[in-house]
Amino acid sequence: MTDTADLIRAVEQADTPPRLLVAVKTLAKAQDEAGIPTLIAVLGYNNPVAAEIAIDGLIQMGSASVQPLITLLDEYNYGARAYSIRALAAIADPRALDVLLASAATDFAPSVRRAAAKGLGSLHWDLLDSSLRSTAQAQAIETLSSIAQDADWSIRYAAIVGLQGLANLPELREAIAPVFEQTAQDADAAVRARVALATQTSP
């Protein structure tokens, strides 16, 4: 049985890309919480293949990855930040709500904003105390409705994807319907098509 500390050292000391990939794969497969900060560090190595492996490992560890992903969010490297937000969106733990709201609304990197907007639509709301749930959902709808008017078409597109996720909840549908109505007139055909798809599957 290899010690996780050895696996972490193997990642940190990998001196060629192939060695790095093997080391990250092994660490991700070990599914040991002690390896989480190292897997998060890999997201900032500027190596997309290694990052994808690390992301999968973090997502599989689910709940345990959430707080470290939030705490260690890379303020300087937006590529790393986009990976972290994608991991948080996939894990869908509502503890990530605040960071997803802020990222969707104000991050300067479109890739980060898109990942956050999509994530806001698919959080596991049932993990949230029922007294907090409707406020949290209202915040998500408010942020997504606002960025559904963004100047960048890809942000508007991601907002629609997020809103579609929320509109799957019957009690939220009424609040979201006017946004779909408005964005159905979007200047970009891709956004209009996405609205059509969203309203088709959530009538």
Partner: peptide, 24 residues
């Protein structure tokens, strides 16, 4: 999508939209 926007929701455009969703 834009090149085939005459029909907003065709089998093809839905296929493309699903690919786009996965890139967000």
């Amino acid at each position: 999508i834009e090149a085939h926007a005459a029909e907003l929701l065709s089998t093809d455009s839905i296929r493309v939209l699903n690919l786009m969703d996965n890139l967000l």
